[in-house]
Computed example of a mutant assay.
Amino acid sequence: MITKKIYIAGHHGMVGSAIWRALEAKGFKNLIGKTSQELDLRNQDQVNQFFNTEKPVVVIDAAARVGGILVNNNFPYQFLMENMQIQNNLIDAAHRHEVKKFIFLGSSCIYPKMAPQPLKEDYLLTGPLEPTNEWYAIAKIAGVKACEAIRKQFNKDFVSLMPTNLYGTHDNFDLQTSHVLPAMMRKFHEAKLNNHAPVTLWGSGTPMREFLFVDDLAAAVLFALENTLDDNLYNVGTGIDLIIKDLALLIQKTVGHQGEIIWDESKPDGTPRKMMDVTKLKALGWSPKVDLESGVLKTYEWFLEHTIQYKEVKM
């Protein structure tokens, strides 16, 4: 497996780059990555030509159009269609070009909004989705089902991993498109530079969320790569959650912001609670290693080091 050609779709993103680092550290040499300029995964002809030329043996699909509540709400068509185009082209090409293993990455948002907690894999398609990100969720559900269909009909090793909320190095800190944790981090940092100005955050702060450091997801992908998994769908998370207000206090403390936090309850909260049941994957031998406090510190250190406009600010 070490010498077999592995294509990591989305290798420049937070998830893809973490997977690339994990595989390199384990000794995998024959890794392929293409930027979106080099290969438009929405274009079926380009994807087929790439598979014809490169002939990867393993494909890891970490490519997606992603974002938080705001951008999901504002661009529903793009989040539905572009994600379906990307994953459908990859899954179909991998099937037709006899790829030996395909690892599809989704999101915990595939589960119903009011599903029992913690979220088990069996809860898929048992109720309505969260409206603020249903477009992305529907696309990812289609990807899970496509991999399941190939597994069922053709007995191929196509497996889906559904991570909880991810964060970490190489995250997206753009306030228009980022998720809750990096958005908070940037807001607190900028407020600190602005004489510890007040920080306004969306919602009531009462929803509960679970967070997984991206290197732990990469370790789960490596585990799936090196093992044959019996089922088609596995959750990847910590099995530990906290209220958003406590997350805000942790990030505020890490950043060193000393100002007021204002909660704008006119903005949506999203799903009340979303915690993964990770029993299935843990039973096979994988478990997360990075606790939230350590992960937030690592992320903030990376933010200070790599975000150009803040390079003059050191911890």
Rank of each mutant, 00 (worst) to 15 (best):
E24N: 14
G168A: 09
A191V: 01
L31F: 06
F154T: 06
L250S: 11
F158S: 03
T307W: 01
D241S: 14
G68V: 08
F303P: 04
Q309E: 12
K120F: 01
P118V: 11
K152R: 13
L225Q: 05
L249C: 14
Y310F: 01
Y77R: 12
A18V: 08
K55N: 06
L233E: 05
M14Y: 03
V57H: 07
Q309H: 05
I261V: 10
F102A: 01
T169Q: 09
R273A: 11
A62R: 04
V47K: 01
D122E: 14
L23I: 09
L80S: 14
D264P: 10
H179D: 09
A137P: 03
P76W: 10
D291P: 01
V59M: 10
L23W: 00
F213Q: 05
T238R: 08
G239I: 02
V144E: 03
D157I: 02
A219C: 03
R65L: 15
A63G: 11
K282F: 11
L39S: 06
L250P: 05
N235D: 13
S266G: 07
T206K: 14
M81S: 12
W286C: 04
E121M: 09
Q252W: 13
L166S: 02
N48V: 04
H11I: 03
G27Y: 11
T169S: 03
Q117P: 10
H97D: 00
A63T: 03
W286M: 10
L292Y: 07
F211R: 05
I86T: 06
T228G: 03
Y310S: 01
G10E: 01
E38K: 10
L193W: 02
W302T: 03
F303T: 01
I150C: 03
N133D: 15
Y7I: 03
Q78N: 13
I240K: 12
V47Q: 06
K26F: 09
E301W: 00
T228F: 05
K274S: 15
E305F: 00
D171I: 07
W286S: 13
G168Q: 02
N155F: 13
Q258R: 15
L201T: 15
A218D: 06
L23T: 04
